[in-house]
Design a protein around this nucleic acid. Structure first.
Lengths: 252, 252
DNA sequence: GTGTTTAACCGGGTGAACCCTCAGAGTGGG
DNA sequence: CCCACTCTGAGGGTTCACCCGGTTAAACAC
């Protein structure tokens, strides 16, 4: 049996953090040097402990965990967080922490755990390369070995990506290429964006410093490219807007 | 120290299920008779074990967990789930299971764990009363005692609701009353719904078996009640639609 | 029985949104 | 240099969406 792997782990959810820590330690294959609840605490623990690998949730609060909630530090025992900080809603603090860790300690592997497949997050995680990085889905970890294997793999510079995440990355590229917005020119997108905000042609003209007839020209082209042919009972302007909002959400 | 509480727990997430089970058992205050990964398995385990309390995630798949993923049954040891079943996307299987358990065994308490505050789920959980039921948020469980206290409370017929959930229930009622859609008559809502689907006045007239001038009359009243006064650069029809979609999502 | 509200519908008028044709300028590729 | 595309703009015409005032009928509350 190889020597246990030294890791630091982070999850702001108490049950996940303490439960996973217990499972990993009881396996005998991992030493959990710290189990923390926020991104700053994670970076601090990595600095102090120099683990071989890090296991973190993708959704990490940027501030400390709420006051009174304990985390675990093998050198100092349970510690209390600082004053409560509000969530920013950004779900990438785990990824930001991974990049920061990699920048400061390239030899430390990082395993990111995510509740959902989100190809934009995976894309962001791997933008500087995949070495020493893993992206796993919480609901598809069927036993502890899968997690232990990932930790070991990243600690020696390898990479592990859940197949569903790979598939999502591939389909994202295809959907962007096949988006109904793809044939629109930049100016047409400008006009459609203003249209989606409820502006009439005069309002769009004012906003983009164009004449109304130019706006009309663009609007007609937009309808044609989105395949919105004139139909007697349809209000095309209204139907163009959700198309734009849906596709804009995809790419922006 | 009182006698340990006998519980059955359910969560389709392996890390949460096995980690929480380990934490609870190590506390010495709980005996986990079964730890399962799906709603049917939960109901089956409750039938066989007759626990004093149940701890379940709100988001439970209706089918068995994927093949090969182990769950734990203290009488039978690790068991494998049946053939893989797709997720339905409904997040209330945990609540449906709670209702089923309460119907069959009123003396068994149920603790529901949820990742998010969702007042419609809480409303649904408590629609037949709150006795023997708890609704807790995973991210606000700071230590094991909070969970143990809830399990004990529901096992003796009490009720525990996270204050954030109570607040969400209260603000839901207020928001429904203050919705901009509240002053609209039923017929106006019909017209607005068709409008939101991109129909012109002629299309709405055809769909609702009305004349166009009746539709025009309703449309004008809708704009007035939504406070959408005529402004030179604004296309009111386009701005009415997201208002409707947002508010309809709230109450639907 | 009376009054109010909702729902339906019409006619007339105005303004905005399409829709087509024509035209000029700038940019980039072959 | 030529061609295609994008962007801009105008004029003329048609259609649709508002907007107002008026009417009738049904349902409900007082």
């Amino acid at each position: 049996m190889p020597e246990p792997l030294r890791i630091v782990m982070a999850d702001d959810n108490y049950l996940v953090r303490e439960g996973a820590r217990r499972l990993l330690e009881d396996s005998g294959e991992v030493v959990v040097q710290a189990a923390v609840g926020s991104a700053p605490e994670l970076l601090d623990a990595v600095r102090r402990m120099r683990p071989e690998a890090v296991l973190t949730d993708i959704r990490m609060p940027p501030g400390a965990v709420p006051e009174g909630l304990p985390t675990y530090d093998s050198a100092a025992g349970p510690v209390n967080g600082a004053a409560q900080a509000d969530r920013t809603g950004r779900a990438m603090e785990g990824i930001d922490a991974a990049h920061a860790i990699k920048a400061g300690h390239p030899e430390i592997g990082v395993v990111i755990l995510s509740q959902y497949v989100d190809e934009s997050y995976a894309f962001e995680l791997f933008r500087d390369g995949t070495a020493g990085l893993a992206y796993l889905l919480k609901d598809r970890i069927g036993d502890l070995n899968r997690l232990l294997d990932a930790l070991r793999e990243v600690s020696r510079g390898g990479s592990v990506i859940d197949p569903q995440v790979v598939e999502a990355l591939v389909t994202r590229r295809v959907r962007l290429r096949e988006s109904p917005l793809a044939p629109l020119t930049a100016r047409e997108l400008d006009v459609l964006r203003e249209m989606a905000q409820g502006r009439g042609n005069a309002g769009i003209a004012a906003e983009l410093s164009l004449s109304e007839s130019s706006v009309e020209k663009h609007v007609n082209a937009i309808f044609a490219k989105l395949g919105l042919t004139a139909e007697p009972l349809v209000h095309r302007r209204v139907t163009a807007v959700p198309t734009f909002l849906r596709e804009a959400g995809l790419s922006g």
